[in-house]
Amino acid sequence: MATGLINANPIVYERKERRVRDSPIDTDEDIKDPEHPYSLEELKVVTEDSIEVNNKQSHVRVTFTPTVEHCSMATIIGLCLRVKLMRSLPPRYKVDIRVAPGTHATEAAGIFPFSSLSLLLKNSILALFFSVNELTIISA
């Protein structure tokens, strides 16, 4: 692990006042940034506009924007989002999580076509993820 923070001084945005919505997705507002005690929404990593929900076809697409281009936490953020969504959405939804185009150095590798990974890999990623970050990130 690098000793210093990757983005030591993030810009913090005000949280958007929630309006009453009918969309079934409303839960990723409390995921914390791996480096900072701010939620992803406050850092504008994920905004309301970057989430597309298609209720009829049961499809959710989240496009997030890492705070800095070389953010090594992009993978973890993506995984956080995925786990949170898996817990919060009915199983009928297919979830796509992507890095916004042009915001990350390793953009191509930043996509998480989770369902296309082999089962073995999927489980090992999750196992690793849970053993390392569970308490500190997801339940934070």
């Binding site: 079934p24 409303d26 839960t27 817990r87 919060s88 009915p90 009928r92 849970f130 308490l135 997801i138």
Partner: peptide
Amino acid sequence: LDDPKRHVRQEAVRCRQAWASIAS
């Protein structure tokens, strides 16, 4: 989670989170 009422869905997410993190 698929309840027609928003309040119920929200409570369900909170509850699922609580129960899921008993043993994670």
